[in-house]
């Protein structure tokens, strides 16, 4: 009773801000996503249609963008996990003297503006950029590699930008693994690899899941990096929504796409949470 009221009071400030500034305005968009849009005329008032949603499910262009966004999200998440886990492990289990410098190194990119970092990648990845010039001067390649305006470029940029979030989540998770539990597995006959797979990995599952959800949601909703490294033609859902709203003024399609993105994100968070609980024996 009392604890329920205390809980309510504790979330009240954030809840008020979120409901007022976020939920209400999002819900106001909901009717718009069911309105008809006529190019040149605009949104038809009092019309009602499922066309905007059906198009996302049936139109090849839209479907490709949706799949690309999901693939990109999964790819970025997987890459961040693969690259981030060893770093997090080193930070937590390595020489304590290196802990602070390493953590600062991980956080440092977050201090730079997103646009600046994405520009940095453009300088590196364009046809006459640093990477291609170097490889061509060394005679390793004759033609410049296509590193931008495609999946490769967007992946590279987004992995770099979201890696710190993943590492910080994994550091927190690894710090919560008791050393004694790992030692217990070793005394019971586990080699180092088996200690890792049978004990460390499952015990860090909550951190892996939390970090993955965070990176996944951030990357499927990212706008700046896909726009800068993907260019105007390589679209993901976020850039498409932006274009529908700001360039085509087709608010109806934009709203429908936004709700689809939210629905996908929520569904994936829910599913992965369930899977994680089962995996870590916490169900």
């Amino acid at each position: 009773m009392n604890s329920a009221r205390t809980g309510l009071l504790l979330i009240a400030p954030l809840a008020i801000v979120l409901v007022g500034a976020f939920l209400v305005s999002v819900l106001l968009l909901a009717p718009t996503s069911f309105r008809e849009y006529l190019p040149g005329t605009g949104i038809v008032p009092d019309s009602w249609t499922l066309e905007n949603y059906l198009r996302i499910a049936t139109d090849d262009f839209y479907r490709e963008v949706v799949w690309r966004t999901l693939a990109l999200g999964l790819g970025v998440t997987a890459a961040c996990l693969m690259l981030g886990y060893p770093v997090a492990y080193l930070i937590v289990r390595g020489d304590p003297r290196w802990r602070l410098p390493l953590t600062l190194l991980v956080i440092f990119p977050l201090m730079l503006n997103l646009v600046v970092r994405s520009f940095g990648w453009i300088a590196l990845l364009t046809n006459r950029g640093l990477v291609n010039n170097l490889l061509m001067s060394l005679g390793i390649i004759d033609e410049p590699l296509k590193l931008m305006f495609n999946l490769t470029g967007v992946m590279i940029g987004m992995v770099h930008i979201y890696l710190p979030f993943m590492v910080l989540m994994l550091v927190a998770a690894l710090q919560n693994v008791p050393r004694d539990v790992e030692a217990a597995a070793a005394t019971l006959g586990s080699g180092r690899m088996h200690v890792f797979t049978a004990v460390t990995l499952p015990l860090t599952a909550p951190g892996i899941i939390a970090g993955s959800i965070l990176v996944f949601v951030l990357s499927i909703s990212a706008l700046v990096t896909p726009r800068m490294l993907g260019g105007p033609t390589y679209q993901v859902m976020a850039t498409l929504i932006y274009d529908e709203y700001m360039q085509l003024l087709d608010w109806s399609s934009g709203s429908a796409l936004s709700f689809t993105l939210v629905a996908i994100a929520v569904a994936i968070i829910w599913l992965s949470n369930r899977a994680a609980k089962r995996w870590a024996g916490l169900a």
Partner: peptide, 30 residues
């Protein structure tokens, strides 16, 4: 020799049970 090659049993002050495994699986681990 590393610990896994010594055939010892160690009981910790902190118990150090595997929290993600059942009691049966904890005992079955070795």
């Amino acid at each position: 020799l590393p610990p896994n090659k010594r055939q010892i049993g160690l009981v910790f002050q902190s118990y150090a049970l595997f929290p993600h495994l059942t009691v049966f699986e904890n005992v079955a681990f070795g």
